[in-house]
Computed example of a mutant assay.
Amino acid sequence: MTDRSLAGQVLVITGAAGGLGSATAFECSARGAVVVLLDVDAAGLARVAATMPGECDTYELDVRDAGACNRVVEDILATRGRIDIVWANAGVSDYGPVDLLPEGTWQRIIDINLIGAHNIVRAALPAVMESEGYVAFTCSWASFAHQPGHSAYAAAKAGLEAFANSLRLELSGTGVRVGSFHPGWIDTTLVTKKMDQPAFAALLGALPGPFGAVTHTDKIVPHFVRALENRSSRMVYPRAGRILLVLRSALNTAPFTARSRAIAPEIRRLSKRDMTRS
C-alpha cells in the first residue's frame, strides 16, 4: 500500500451527519479533501458542514432510495466533475432478540446497512472507475463476530464484508481498490443510545477483556484517515479485533460462544421487561 495525499480528492461519505462519518470527514477536509457529506438528517448535515475546514458539499439522502442515490451522484459530478472515493458508511442498529424487535426493525437495518451501501456504490462506481479510485465499506467487528441481540446488524455487516470481498475481485485490473473497515464498539450514538438498555449492558459485561470495551471516537478516526489515504484492503480497530478476525472460523464453536450462550437468557428476560415497560 502506498500513502497518497487526500488533497483535491473528492470524497463521498454516507452517514456523515455525525459519528465516525463526520469525525473522519473533518480530518480528511483538513488534509485538503473535498468532502461530500450524505445523510438523511439535513439539520445534522448543516451543523457538520459548518465545522469543515475545507471545501464541503452536502446532500440529504436516504440510501434506501436507489433513484435518489443516482440523482445525488449526478449532481456531485455536475458540481465537482469527479468522484475519487465513495465510502458507504451509513448504518443503524437496534438491540434485542429477533422475535422481540418491533415489526419492520430487522428489515430496516438490512435495507440501510446493506442494500443502501449497494445503492450508493453502484451509483458512484462508474465515476470511481473513471478516476481509478477507492470504494470503502464500514463493516464492523460484527461482520465476523456475532452476538445475541444483533442478528440483523450481524447479517447486514457480514453481507457487506462479502460484498466488499467480491467487488474487490470484480474490479481487478480497473485500478479501483476496495476496502472493508471493521470498527469495534465505538462511543458513537450507534452504541451509546443502547447503553441504557440493561440487555445490551449485560452483553458488554459478559464479553471478556477488550472485546466488551467501548473505544473513544478520537482513537479510531486516525485509522480511518490512514485507510482512506492508503486505500487499504482492510482496517480493523481496536487491534483486539484482529484476534477475532484471525479466529473467525472458530468463533461460532462451543468454547468461544460459551459466555454469549450463558448470558442469552438474561438478555431475553431484560429485553422482554423493557418492552413491557415501553
Rank of each mutant, 00 (worst) to 15 (best):
Glu229Lys: 11
Leu125Ser: 01
Ala66Lys: 10
Ser29Trp: 05
His150Gln: 10
Ala206Gly: 03
Leu245Lys: 08
Leu167Ser: 01
Tyr95Val: 02
Ile220Cys: 15
Asp196Ala: 09
Pro198His: 03
Ala154Ser: 14
Glu74Phe: 00
Ser22Asn: 09
Ala16Asp: 06
Arg226Cys: 01
Ile186Gly: 09
Ala17Arg: 03
Tyr59Thr: 13
Asn70Ser: 09
Tyr237Cys: 14
Thr257Gln: 08
Leu101Gly: 07
Gly91Gln: 05
Ala43Cys: 05
Gly8Thr: 02
Phe181Tyr: 11
Asn252Val: 12
Arg4Ile: 00
Ala16Gly: 07
Ala124Asp: 06
Ala88Trp: 05
Arg82Ala: 15
Ala262Cys: 01
Leu247Gly: 04
Val121Ile: 12
Leu207Pro: 15
Leu167Asn: 05
Val178Ala: 13
Asp274Pro: 01
Ser249Gln: 08
Phe211Gly: 06
Ala142Cys: 02
Asp3Arg: 14
Gly241Ser: 04
Arg269Asp: 08
Asp62Arg: 12
Leu20Trp: 04
Leu11Glu: 08
Leu169Asn: 06
Gln9Phe: 02
Arg168Gly: 11
Arg177Asn: 05
Ala17His: 04
Gly104Lys: 13
Leu11Cys: 04
Ile109Met: 12
Asp62Met: 13
Cys69Gln: 10
Ser180Met: 08
Lys272Thr: 05
Gly184Phe: 07
Arg122Lys: 07
Ile110Thr: 02
Asp41Tyr: 08
Arg248Lys: 07
Pro53Phe: 09
Tyr95Ile: 04
Arg226Asp: 14
Val236Ser: 06
Thr24Met: 05
Ser151Arg: 15
Met195Ala: 08
Trp106Asn: 15
Lys194Pro: 07
Tyr237Ala: 11
Leu11Met: 04
Ile263Cys: 01
Gly209Lys: 08
Ala158Asn: 13
Ala254Glu: 11
Leu270His: 13
Arg177Ile: 02
Leu244Arg: 07
Ile267Tyr: 06
Ile13Phe: 04
Pro208Ile: 01
Val135Asn: 12
Val86Met: 09
Cys139Ser: 15
Gly81His: 12
Glu27Asn: 00
Ser233Gly: 13
Ser232Lys: 14
Ala199Ile: 00
Asn113Ser: 05
Thr215Leu: 15
Asp39Cys: 10
Phe211Asn: 06
Asp39Phe: 04
Gly32Ala: 00
Asn119Arg: 13
Leu114Met: 03
Leu169Glu: 13
Pro255Ala: 06
Pro198Cys: 02
Gly179Pro: 05
Glu27Val: 09
Ala250Ile: 15
Val72Tyr: 11
Phe181Glu: 11
Leu11Arg: 02
Gly18His: 09
Ala78Arg: 09
Ser131Arg: 14
Val72Trp: 10
Phe211His: 04
Gly67Trp: 03
Phe256Gln: 06
His146Phe: 11
Phe211Lys: 12
